[in-house]
């Protein structure tokens, strides 16, 4: 019985951790490259979810196949990333790269407040629900318990794909190498002719796209409603900080840790479910302030 429960809790934890990773990795990437902790990151998660849900409902209304939802998620995320993220980088962040971290943090806080409001103005306050893709993939049976294939298989696979995709991108492609170069030593990179601004733009758009992809992928599993971004920000913070800011592989492990901690809590100590991510974060930071995988100096991505 207890082995069965461990398996169940592990599956739930992995599914949850995968989703959190997708969002947190964008935040940690942006921080790694730009040294900006983007408080509005959770709002992009919410925007991605809203965009995917409303597009999905519209597509269902047109009678299109639910399978089309999967490419649509990527499109929706990219659209949010390029338009909202691109505009924010181009017209706001570019003005403040020289500023102190605190002010940069506050600029993103201001964007967070505005986007929270804009969401309500655009989408209203009623929850949206779009679960066709979830049902499309059907169920799987593990240890006599029904799971959705979407959550137990699809989301972790996407998370893995993003993880390895990012690794590959940063290590083996030119654009990725340029990003790494700027991260390691901006002056030297600029000296050899790399356009740091363009790198920042690219990184930020990728980061925002990942957040909204997380939102888009979450939309079939949850009600899309106002305030969903504010919670996700703190959770992403917790993952990014537990891992060490800027650590991509670390974020995957931290997300898994937090996901497992949470689902174990549901089975064994339900009262601790909510506190779990923050407890993990506080404990890790107290012992290793730079995070589990962070390096004290010269942080890399």
């Amino acid at each position: 019985m207890s082995l069965q429960i461990l398996v169940l809790a592990a599956l739930d934890g992995i599914a949850y951790g995968a989703l959190v990773f997708l969002v947190a990795v964008g935040m940690t990437l942006v921080f790694g490259v730009m040294r900006i902790l983007n408080v509005a990151h959770g709002s992009f998660y919410a925007l991605g979810a809203y965009a995917a849900a409303s597009l999905g409902i519209a597509m269902a209304g047109m009678g299109l196949s639910p399978w089309l939802a999967f490419p649509m998620f990527i499109v929706a995320a990219a659209v949010v990333g390029i338009t909202v993220g691109g505009l924010m980088e181009r017209f706001l962040l570019q003005r403040i790269y020289g500023y102190e971290e605190t002010l940069q943090l506050l600029v993103t806080f201001a964007v967070f407040m505005m986007l929270e409001n804009v969401q309500r103005l655009v989408w209203g306050v009623q929850p949206y629900f779009y679960s066709d893709p979830l049902r499309q993939l059907g169920n799987v049976n593990v240890a006599g318990i029904t799971y959705t294939a979407y959550q137990t298989l699809f989301l972790p696979l996407v998370a893995l794909a993003v993880l390895f995709g990012l690794r590959f991108f940063l290590r083996y492609t030119l654009a990725g190498s340029v990003i790494v170069a700027v991260t390691e030593d901006r002056e030297a990179a600029t000296a050899i002719g790399i356009n740091a601004r363009r790198v920042f733009f690219l990184t930020f758009v990728i980061g925002v796209t990942l957040a909204s992809l997380g939102g888009a992928l979450a939309s079939p599993t949850t009600s899309v409603l106002p305030g969903m971004g504010a919670e996700m920000i703190v959770l992403s913070f917790a993952v990014a900080a537990t891992a060490g800011l800027g650590q991509i592989e670390g974020a995957a492990i931290a997300a898994l840790l937090i996901g497992l901690g949470r689902s174990m809590a549901v089975f064994f100590a339900p009262e601790f479910e909510v506190v779990m991510p923050y407890l993990i974060m506080v404990l890790v930071l107290l012992i290793r302030p730079e995070g589990l995988f962070g390096k004290t100096t010269a942080r890399k991505i």
Partner: peptide, 29 residues
């Protein structure tokens, strides 16, 4: 936003009755 772990636990225990006084987006989810 997610009740997967709760639902797994309920599937494992199979109660005859499940009560929830939740509302709004939480209940929908």
């Amino acid at each position: 936003p997610d009740f997967s772990a709760e639902i797994s636990r309920l599937l494992a225990t199979q109660p005859d009755v499940i009560l929830s006084t939740s509302w709004g987006g939480d209940l929908d989810t």
